[in-house]
Design a protein around this nucleic acid. Structure first.
Length: 626
DNA sequence: GGCGGGACCATTTTT
DNA sequence: TGGTCCCGCC
C-alpha cells in the first residue's frame, strides 16, 4: 500500500510539508518515519518543477537506501534524477571518485571490505620497517577508533596527556603511513572514505560550495546512528542553522554505541543547528499492551531527548504479552518450540525469535531442526558462498586490483574447491614473476591445465585479460557453471549456487538501473560488494535474529528469549556500568517494539550451568510481581 | 581424604 | 557475578 499525504496525522503532515531551515523529527518505533521522509522528498520535488537542485538522502544501510528509493519511485514515477538516496559511505565514494584527484586519489580506487586485507597492509608496513608496528591488530583497532571519531593525525595530540608524546607520535606515524599506503595502492577502506571526504570538503572550499549548491536539501534517516566522523562530514555539507537539514531520529534506539553512535550526537545537533523539533509519538505498529511495557521500560533511561512524549498506540489489534519462566535454557528452548509448533507451517514466516547473542540463537536453531522445524539465523550481510560464484567474483576482483595478494589467495582457494588439483597462490605468483606477466594471466594459465576449469580459464583470459569485457565474462561463466552444477541426479553439485546466482543477477540488475548499462568494473564490484545478499526464506521458516539485526523490522509474532541477568543485559554491560546498561535497555526496547501483534518473553533460571536471575528489564516493564 | 584456589565463560556488526 | 571441576598440597 502506498501511503499518501492525506493519510497522515497532523504532526506527520507538518514534517512532510516542512520547507526551510533545520528540522529534527523525533520518531518512535512504528511512527511512520520512512513514510514521512519519502513523502517529504517527493513533495519537494513535485513542488519545484522548474528548479535544478538535488535532494540528498543519507542512510546507514544499503537496504534502507533501496527501500526508500523504491517508495519514492512509487510516489513520483521514475524521476530519480534530482534525488540522490544513498548511504553515507556511498556518498563519500562518489565524491572522492569525482574530486579525489585533489588529494592524490585516482577515480578508479577499489574498496577494501575485509579486515584481513587491512591487517595485511599493516603487517607489510611493519615488516618493511617504514614504521614500527609490533601488533597489527592493536594498530588497526586504534586506527578504527580514530576513524569512527573522525580524528586526524594532526588532531591526535589533543587526545593524549602530557608525558605520552612518544606514544602519540608513534600512532601518528602509523596512521599517516596507513593512509599513504591506501592512496598508493589505490584502495580505500570504509573509515578512510569518510576521512578523505572530510579532508576534501574542509580543504577545498570551492568543492564544498559546489556540493552545497547542488544539494540544497539534505535528509538523514536514523540520525541517532551517526558516528562523529559521519557527523563531521554532514556539518561540511550542511554547515549551519540556515541549512535545509531534515533529520529523523529516535534516541531510544541508539544501539550501535560500540560503533561510534552516541546520545551526545543529538545534543550536538541541537546546539549546532538549533532545529525546530517535531515529535511523532504515535505508534502504528505495536498493540497497546506492548506500547505500555515499552514505555515503562524506557522511562528508566534518564536524559532522553527533552520532552519526548510517551509512545501512544494507534494499533487497534488485540495483542497479547506473555511471559514464561523455565528452570534451564534447554527447557526455555523447548517451551519456545511448543509455542511455535501450533502455528500453521505457512504462517511461520510471521514469527521472529530475538535474542541478545548469536550463541542462544544457534542453540534454538539446532533444537528446531531436530524437531523438524525450519529456522534460519538472519544476518544482514552475506557473501557469496558457492565456490563457482566465488571463482568468477574473485577473478573479476583480481582484474580490478591486480596486486592484491589476499584477493589472489581467495581466488586460488575458490579454484581449489571447484577443481581436482590444487592451485596455489605461491605457484601463481612465481609463474607471474618468471614470465613477467600479471598474476591473473598466470592464474588462468595454471587453471587451464585442469579439465574442469579449462573453459573458464579460456574465457577469463580472453574477456578479463586480453580485453576487459567483464559483462560478457559473467554471462559466459553462468553458462559454464550451470552445466557444472548439474550432477545428473536430483541434487545440485553446488548447493548454494542457485541462491548465489539469483542474488548476483538481482543485484547486477539494480546496479545497471542506477549506474547505467556500461558501468565500469570498479563501480560494479563496489556495489556488488556492498549490496546485501539475503538468502530467500520460505513461508514455513522461522526467523532468528539478534537485536541488532532486527532493528527496523516488524513481525506479527515476536519471541524475545534469554531475558536473564548477564544474558540480557549482558555480563559485559553490567560490568561496565550505568551507561552500558542504558544501551542494553534500548536494545530491549528495540526488541519488544518489533511486535505488531503478539509478544512472547521468556527467561530461564540457569544458562549453560550458571544460575541467573530474571532480567531487571522484566521488572522495569512491570512484568514481575514482587 | 579433605581442603583451598584457580580456571572456566562471557556481545552486538553496518559500511 | 555465578556452579563445578580439577589440580596441587597437606
Amino acid at each position: 500500500m502506498t501511503i499518501t499525504i492525506d493519510m497522515l496525522n497532523a504532526n506527520q503532515r507538518l514534517a512532510v510539508e516542512w520547507s526551510q531551515g533545520p528540522l529534527l523529527v523525533l520518531a518512535g518505533p512504528g511512527s511512520g518515519k520512512t513514510a514521512v521522509l519519502t513523502l517529504r522528498i517527493a513533495n519537494l520535488i513535485t513542488n519545484s518543477p522548474d528548479e535544478s537542485f538535488r535532494i540528498l538522502g543519507l542512510t546507514f544501510t544499503v537496504k534502507a537506501a533501496n527501500e526508500m528509493q523504491n517508495r519514492i519511485r512509487e510516489l513520483t514515477g521514475d524521476e530519480p534524477r534530482r534525488i540522490k538516496l544513498c548511504t553515507f559511505h556511498s556518498f563519500c565514494t562518489d565524491l572522492l571518485r569525482q574530486h579525489g584527484s585533489q588529494l592524490g586519489l585516482k577515480p578508479d580506487f577499489s574498496v577494501i571490505t575485509d579486515d584481513k586485507d587491512r591487517l595485511a597492509i599493516l603487517g607489510e608496513m611493519g615488516a618493511s620497517g617504514e614504521v614500527e608496528i609490533d601488533d597489527p591488530e592493536d594498530s588497526l583497532k586504534k586506527i578504527d577508533t580514530m576513524f569512527t571519531h573522525g580524528i586526524t593525525a594532526d588532531e591526535l595530540p589533543g587526545y593524549f596527556d602530557s608525558g605520552q608524546e612518544d606514544t602519540c607520535r608513534a600512532l601518528q606515524d602509523v596512521f599517516r603511513g596507513y593512509l599513504a599506503r591506501l592512496v598508493k595502492d589505490n584502495q580505500l577502506d570504509f573509515g578512510s572514505m569518510l576521512h578523505f571526504t572530510r579532508e576534501l570538503l574542509a580543504s577545498k572550499p570551492r568543492i564544498a560550495r559546489q556540493v552545497r549548491m547542488v544539494y540544497r536539501y539534505v535528509c538523514v534517516d536514523e540520525f541517532q546512528d551517526t558516528n562523529l566522523a559521519q557527523y563531521k562530514v554532514l556539518r561540511l555539507v550542511s554547515p549551519d542553522s540556515s541549512s535545509n537539514l531534515f533529520v529523523v531520529a529516535d534516541d531510544d534506539q541508539i544501539i550501535f554505541q560500540w560503533n561510534g553512535a552516541d546520545p551526545k550526537r543529538l545534543e550536538e545537533l541541537k546546539q549546532d543547528y538549533t532545529p525546530q523539533i517535531i515529535q511523532l509519538p504515535e505508534n502504528y505498529r505495536c498493540p497497546a499492551e506492548v506500547v505500555k511495557i515499552a514505555n515503562q521500560l524506557i522511562a528508566h533511561n534518564p536524559g532522553r531527548a527533552s520532552a519526548k512524549l510517551d509512545g501512544v498506540s494507534q494499533n487497534k489489534v488485540d495483542g497479547t504479552v506473555k511471559l514464561q519462566e523455565f528452570a534451564n535454557f534447554e527447557d526455555e528452548v523447548a517451551g519456545l518450540i511448543s509455542e511455535i509448533e501450533p502455528i500453521p507451517r505457512n504462517h511461520r514466516e510471521t514469527c521472529l525469535v530475538i535474542a541478545r547473542s548469536n550463541k542462544l540463537l544457534t542453540h534454538v536453531q539446532t533444537a528446531m531442526h531436530e524437531k523438524g522445524l525450519s529456522a534460519e539465523i538472519v544476518s544482514r550481510h552475506q557473501d557469496f558462498v558457492s565456490p563457482l560464484v566465488q571463482l568468477m567474483y574473485f577473478a573479476m576482483k583480481v582484474a580490478n586490483a591486480p596486486d592484491s595478494r589476499s584477493l589472489l589467495n581467495k581466488l586460488c582457494s575458490a579454484a581449489t574447491l571447484v577443481n581436482d588439483i590444487i592451485v596455489s597462490a605461491e605457484d601463481v605468483s612465481a609463474k607471474a614473476k618468471v614470465e613477467d606477466q600479471t598474476p591473473l594471466r598466470a592464474f588462468f594459465a595454471l587453471a587451464a591445465t585442469s579439465e574442469t576449469l579449462q573453459p573458464f580459464a579460456d574465457k577469463g583470459k580472453e574477456l578479463l585479460c586480453d580485453s576487459l569485457e567483464y559483462a560478457s565474462f559473467v554471462d559466459a561463466c553462468f553458462q559454464l557453471f550451470d552445466q557444472l552444477n548439474v550432477t545428473g541426479g536430483e541434487n545440485e553439485a553446488y548447493p548454494d549456487y542457485s541462491d548465489d546466482k539469483q542474488n548476483w543477477q538481482r543485484i547486477a540488475q539494480e546496479i545497471r538501473q542506477s549506474h547505467g548499462e556500461g558501468v565500469s568494473l570498479h563501480i560494479f564490484l563496489q556495489e556488488m560488494d556492498l549490496s546485501p545478499k539475503a538468502k530467500p526464506l520460505s513461508k514455513d521458516c522461522v526467523r532468528l535474529q539478534t537485536v541488532h539485526t532486527a532493528k527496523g523490522v516488524e513481525f506479527d509474532n515476536v519471541f524475545v528469549i534469554g531475558l536473564a541477568e548477564e544474558q540480557f543485559p549482558t555480563y559485559f554491560a553490567i560490568k561496565k556500568g550505568e551507561l552500558a546498561i542504558r544501551e542494553e535497555r534500548r536494545n530491549c526496547f528495540v526488541a519488544i517494539t518489533r511486535s505488531s501483534q503478539n509478544l512472547y518473553l521468556s527467561y530461564a533460571r540457569s544458562y549453560f550451568g550458571w544460575d541467573k536471575r530474571p532480567s531487571r528489564f522484566l521488572d522495569e516493564m512491570g512484568l514481575l510481581d514482587a
